[in-house]
Structure formats: C-alpha cells, structure tokens
C-alpha cells in the first residue's frame, strides 16, 4: 500500500508529553502564542512575530506566516536536518543531534556584531514538541506547508480556520536499502502522478529472476516514484550504500529554508532546472550562484548555506553522507569544507 511520502513513518503512538508553553487562543485571530525558552512566537493574519532578549530589551522580527510555517514544517519533518535550518537571514535552528539550538541574529553579520543576537539550546524532543504544537495551531484547513503554492493557495492567510493535522504529521520516509523491497519502505504506485510530471513514463523495469533468487534482485522506476511525490523540498532515501544515502526529492517554487551545511552534500539534477543561491554560512555574504540543468552535478561545501528556486517542478538527487562524526571533523578543521582538491 503506497502512502503519502511522509506518512510512511510516524512517531510512537503515545509520544512523551512535554509542557509546551502556550497561551489561550487570541480572541481576535484564534491563534495561540507560544514560548520556547526565551523565544516568543505570535501569529496574526499574515505574519509571525518572534522575539528574543537582547541587552537593549526584547527585539522583534517579523516573517510572513506562509514562509515561517513552510520552514518550520521542514525543520519538524527532517528532525532538524543536517546542520543549520535558516528560516530566513535572522532566525533558525542548528542541529546538535540530541540537542538543538535556536538562534536569532546569530548568523546575520550586522545583528551579531551589534550584540543583538541570541542563541538558546534545548533538548531536541522538547523543542520538537513545541514546533509541532505551533504547526498544529497555526496551519489552517487547506494549508499544506509541504505543497507548492499553486496546490495549496492562500489558505495560510487570515484568522484561524480549522486545521490540517494530516498534512503536518509527516516525516521522512525511512528506507533501509531500497523502496519496494520486502520489509522496506513502500512504493507510490497507487498515488497520483503530480500535475507537473504527467509526461514522465510510468513503465517499470523488467526483472527476470531465476528460480531460487526471488527477492534478491530489485529495480524500480525512480522517476515514476518521484513523479508521485506529494511534497516539495523534502528529500527521502531511495538507496543506501552504508552511510551513503541517495535522497531524491521534487522541487517547486522556493526551498523555504536556507540550509546551512555541517558536511559536504551533493546535488545531481535529474530533470528540469533549479537555480541555487549560495552564501557564507557564518555571515550570509553571497559566494556563488548556480543554475543546474539535467545531468549537472555540484557539491555544496560544508561552510555554506544555500537556497534553491524552481519554476517548474523538477527532480533533484540530493546525496548525503550520514556519518555522525562529520560535523565535528569539519568544525574542527580536520576536514576541509570542500570535497576534492585538484
């Protein structure tokens, strides 16, 4: 049975309970306000207002609720991902794997130099519970923060109007070896082909297995699998070679976050095109721009942050090395931030 991309893995049936700090619903907007340590989060019809303490008093930063919720959705679904998840140049999270930092202004050169930045560290499960509570309260009916704008429209705007729990209870598909193998993650054959991939051939590989080797040989139509993805900018694993993970994804509109790498990752453009803006991870200063077309391959060094833009939904192979010691090796300079010297 296929299932929506991120419904394949869910948390435990009875997750641990945390005391998420939240207000009663606002009588005007219907949304609750939340606190995570010294960070305060408030939303109105259009904006999220987040604030943090500074020597000059509390500083407030405003984001479009649309952009904030799309970013928060990725942070939650990816378990805070590899490294930094910059919601925008001001606010984001850094995964310490078991702990997580939330920051404001820390990687904005001007704010940080002015002493107006703030960082606070949390146990990941507690921070995750708070993030999920925000998503549950702030995503109104019809708004899917994983969907392309053309698919989910402007349902994010306005006062609270129901919820969309099914859309936000998503997490990445966990594949042990390859989708479709016995005991592994499912294929998506009974999901619809996305409107942007209606022309992608749906034929399957032909597998001729000799008696006695049933289940030993395996192949899938990867492009068919991707054409049926119901989400954007959400890598999921399709092949595992020890710690080498192929994590293809379909991309449309804007990667909601600027991903700051704590290791080198690689992109292989499978179809269509994506433009990447690459900035310095620490300061946000522009370093490169990259237009990737089918067959193009590029590394994303360990000391950058990047954001992608795709007008037409495209297929991108994200390639990760899941070694857990990599962040420390790069941070301490034992590994250079780029993958190859030539």
């Amino acid at each position: 049975m296929a299932m929506p991309e991120s419904a394949a893995v869910r948390g435990p049936a009875r997750p641990p309970q945390f005391n998420v700090v939240m207000s009663e619903p606002d009588p005007k907007t219907g949304f609750r306000a939340f606190e995570l340590g010294q960070f305060h989060f408030l939303r109105d019809d259009y904006f999220v207002h987040l604030s943090w303490p500074t020597p000059q008093g509390r500083l407030e930063h405003r984001m479009s609720a649309d952009a904030f919720l799309r970013s928060l959705m990725r942070d939650v679904a990816w378990g805070f991902f590899y490294g930094w998840v910059n919601f925008d140049p001001m606010f984001g999270s850094r995964n310490l794997y078991g702990r997580v930092q939330f920051f404001a202004g820390r990687y904005h050169e001007a704010y940080h130099k002015a002493g107006l930045s703030y960082v606070e560290e949390f146990d990941s499960p507690f921070a995750m519970a708070t993030c999920k509570a925000i998503l549950r309260d702030w995503c109104s009916a019809g708004f899917d923060p994983f969907a392309a704008p053309e698919e989910t429209g402007s349902t994010w705007a306005g006062p609270k109007n129901g919820d969309n729990i099914e859309a936000i209870e998503r997490t990445r598909v966990a594949t042990k070896r390859m989708p479709g193998m016995s005991g592994d993650s499912p294929l998506r054959d009974d999901l619809p082909v996305n409107r942007a991939f209606a022309d992608v051939p749906q034929d399957d590989p032909v597998i001729e297995v000799e008696p006695g080797f049933e289940g030993k040989l395996h192949a899938i139509n990867l492009f068919k699998y991707l054409s049926r993805s119901d989400v954007t900018w959400n890598p999921s694993v399709t092949s595992v070679c020890r710690e080498s993970l192929f994590c293809p994804t379909t991309e449309e509109y804007i990667l909601p976050i600027k991903h700051g790498n704590d290791r080198v990752e690689w992109f292989v453009q499978l179809t269509d095109e994506i433009e990447w803006e690459v900035e310095d991870k620490e300061t946000g200063k522009p370093r490169a721009r990259l237009l990737m077309r089918p067959g193009d391959v590029a590394s994303m060094p360990a000391d950058i942050r990047h954001q992608g833009f795709a007008t037409k939904r495209s297929m991108l192979l994200v390639w990760e090395n899941a070694r857990m010691d990599l962040p420390k090796l790069y941070e301490t300079g034992q590994l250079k931030p780029y993958p190859v010297e030539f």
């Binding site: 942007a196 991939f197 022309d199 992608v200 453009q269 499978l270 179809t271 269509d272 095109e273 690459v278 310095d280 200063k285 522009p286 370093r287 490169a288 721009r289 990259l290 237009l291 990737m292 077309r293 089918p294 067959g295 193009d296 391959v297 590029a298 590394s299 994303m300 060094p301 037409k312 931030p337 780029y338 993958p339 190859v340 010297e341 030539f342």
Partner: peptide, 26 residues
C-alpha cells in the same frame, strides 16, 4: 519535463561571487 541525454544536454552555469569554483566540482 526536461531530461538530458547523450545527444542533447545543456549545462547550466556556475557564477562565482566570492569563492573558488573548484569547491563546487561542477
């Protein structure tokens, strides 16, 4: 959907602002 092939492919473009192009192994 645009796909590449041996007979028909068109590379994109790497524009460097402040970096070494080698770091992108493009």
């Amino acid at each position: 959907t645009v796909m590449g092939s041996l007979e028909s492919f068109e590379r994109g473009h790497l524009s460097i602002i402040d970096d070494d192009p080698k770091h992108y192994c493009y």
